[in-house]
């Protein structure tokens, strides 16, 4: 049976075309198509919803809101208009109105998972994390085989500090959709917070390979490398105390220095074991994208060379140089951290 020819229902054709263009991320074309279609069918709720959805995807919330308002006015019984309105109001930080709109959407279509997802997101953005978690749990019940539903639950649970639920939900998301890069990334963030840098880096490299253009992967890798450098500095502080304590005897300094070096190598291997093949060039290249971090690792390498010199010469006092280096690194980390936090605050404003 052949499909009817386009043109027999121009309105439906236009709606479907816009939805397709939006789905393949041709947002310019989708917006143009939506506006063109609206000039022919100005009051059509479906087209207004499509335009609002396109503008939402383009992060032009203020422009999108009138379209969503018009869609709701044209078809007040249609769930989608309320849902879009709720999401847009939430993005504009008008949380009370957003919650009301999203609630209307869920009331109209209580069995619709997308309405539930939107409601949970609006709750999450409004800071009502417990309610958001409850709503996300209900979405999972409605659509247990939806990776998006589990991802939502994981995200909300993560914000709530319920790491166990978050981890389980991320793992379920990845079971349902092994190519879900965002879930892979967020699970790696949980690993990093749980002080498992090796696992975190592995997850991040996987996420980067799944979605190479996902820009936050690089910054998260950089954050994990900062975390690793912090551990290394801490370890070197302890190790240097041990070396300095035995500085009077050349043999003892040599032995302690050697043990420190061996333990450093062991700890490094332990932390980074299980990294996928080909990870090192990625890590080195990522390291080089952040100049202060490159400097930190270069200084740490010099510290290890000083310890090698202690082993070679038996001069335990050389370890004092490591102390100086670590103090300088501490100051550098402090300055960089403050500067970055300030920059982040400014960009958020």
């Amino acid at each position: 049976m052949s499909a009817p020819r386009p043109g027999t229902d121009g309105l439906a054709d236009a709606r479907a075309r816009i939805a397709h263009l939006r789905q393949v991320r041709r947002l310019d074309d989708a917006e143009r198509a939506a506006r063109d279609a609206l000039s022919s069918w100005p009051g059509d709720a479906g087209l207004l919803c499509e335009l609002a959805a396109v503008l939402l995807a383009r992060e032009r919330y203020t422009e999108a809101l009138p379209a969503a308002d018009a869609a709701v006015a044209a078809a007040p019984g249609d769930e989608r208009g309320h849902r879009l309105r709720g999401l847009l109001l939430s993005m504009l930080d008008r949380h009370a109105e957003a919650l009301s709109a999203a609630w209307t959407s869920v009331s109209i279509a209580p069995q619709e998972p997308v309405a539930g997802i939107a409601y949970a997101r609006v709750l999450q953005r409004a800071g009502r994390l417990r309610d958001a978690a409850q709503a996300a749990g209900r979405v999972v019940t409605l659509a247990p085989s939806s990776a998006d539903a589990h991802f939502l639950l994981a995200d909300v649970a993560g914000d709530l500090g319920d790491v166990t639920t978050a981890r389980r939900a991320y793992e379920e998301t990845l079971r349902l959709d092994p190519e879900h890069a965002a879930a892979r990334h967020d699970l790696a963030v949980l690993d990093a917070r749980a002080r498992r840098p090796g696992r975190a880096l592995r997850g991040l490299i996987d996420a980067g390979r799944l979605a190479p253009a996902m820009t936050q992967v690089r910054s998260t890798v950089v954050a994990v490398l900062w975390q690793l450098s912090g551990r290394m500095r801490l370890w070197l502080v302890v190790a240097t105390i041990a070396v300095l304590a035995t500085a009077e005897s050349a043999l003892a300094a040599r032995i302690v220095g050697g043990v420190v070096l061996l333990l450093t190598a062991g700890l490094g291997w332990w932390s980074l074991r299980g990294l996928p093949r080909g990870s090192w060039p990625v890590l080195v290249a990522t390291l080089r994208t952040d100049r202060p971090l490159t400097l930190v690792y270069a200084v740490l390498a010099v510290c290890l060379l000083v310890l090698v010199a202690v082993v070679a010469t038996g001069l335990g006092v050389l370890a004092i140089l490591v102390w100086f280096a670590l103090i300088a690194l501490g100051l550098l980390t402090l300055v960089v951290g403050l500067a970055r936090r300030r920059r982040q605050r400014t960009s958020e404003r």
């Binding site: 490299i205 980067g208 390979r209 190479p212 253009a213 996902m214 820009t215 992967v217 690089r218 080909g278 990625v282 290249a285 990522t286 994208t289």
Partner: peptide, 13 residues
């Protein structure tokens, strides 16, 4: 180029 940098880092296996 911001996206391309990531691609060159992670997607060039």
């Amino acid at each position: 180029f911001a996206a391309a940098r990531n691609v060159a880092l992670f997607g060039n296996t």
